Amino acid sequence: MKILVTGGTGTLGNSFVKNALKDNIDVRIASRRQPQEPLTEWSFLDLESGEGLKNSLLDVDVVLHAATSPVKNTSAIDVEGTKKLIEACKESRVKHLIFPSIVGIESLPMAYYQSKTEAEKIIKEGGVPYTIVRATQFHSLMDSLFHTLTKFPLSILPGQLKCQSVDVDEVASYLMELCQLTPQGTVDDFGGPEILTLKEMYTVWEQHRHPKSLLIPLSYLPISLFKAMKEGKNTNIEQKRGKKTWEEWIKEN
């Protein structure tokens, strides 16, 4: 079995590749920029233009489609790029496309999440055997968020928002399990082991990171996205599948 990882240099892709190599799985990274320290075979791929798709998919059995662009060119990469990938997978007769998505995206009014929802639909209707699995936010993302907030002497924190963060390595390990199976369609969400408010998460983070800035709690913002996260639309209490808690991850990193 040969696996192609689009977005193989990203947080999830990189974790998956390391996991695959430990198990002696034949894996190829596809991205626009070659990794400075390549772990394995690399192939140039520009999803926006489609350049490199044919070469990247050569002799590939399974595609882990982890490429994404949450900040800019989101529609071009996550939507149109996924369309191009699907067509190329059909031409190359790829046996299995695995798409890691995000929990609650249909309920969270955010352009990036809308693009992920559209990408899911494209994959479902695309004609390539697929597995879609949604995960909650990664511990590392929340760590980066708090680091960014505390760069300033004074910041605000919408502390009542909920989160169910998960260890990216646990998600990557599960994705590897899915690679060994036949296409499953849409499978159950993969959430972290606990649901916490941002205030609770920050309290833990502050104890171990010791920031110098002052964060002021914010109880209300008239923004629909914040309302949805306060209600926990980005979590799934029935799918606490990850094992490593937020505090355990913080202590290790």
Rank of each mutant, 00 (worst) to 15 (best):
Q34W: 03
Q34V: 08
K54W: 07
L39N: 11
S56N: 11
G52H: 07
G50L: 10
R32W: 13
L45P: 09
H65E: 00
N55E: 15
G52T: 04
V27C: 05
S69R: 06
L39V: 01
S31L: 11
L53C: 06
K72T: 15
L57Q: 02
L45V: 07
E41F: 04
T40Q: 07
R28V: 15
G52V: 03
S69I: 05
L64Q: 01
A67E: 03
V60N: 00
W42K: 04
L45W: 09
P70L: 01
A67Y: 04
L58I: 11
E41P: 02
L64W: 04
V63D: 00
P35Q: 06
D61Y: 08
L53V: 06
A30F: 13
L45K: 08
A67Q: 01
S31P: 10
S69T: 04
V62I: 13
A30R: 05
D61Q: 13
I29H: 07
A30M: 05
N73F: 10
P70F: 01
N55G: 14
V63P: 02
L47T: 03
Q36I: 14
H65V: 01
H65P: 04
F44H: 11
N73K: 14
V63W: 05
V63F: 03
P38G: 09
E48M: 11
H65D: 01
V63K: 01
H65A: 14
L64C: 06
P35R: 06
T68Y: 03
R28Q: 05
R33P: 02
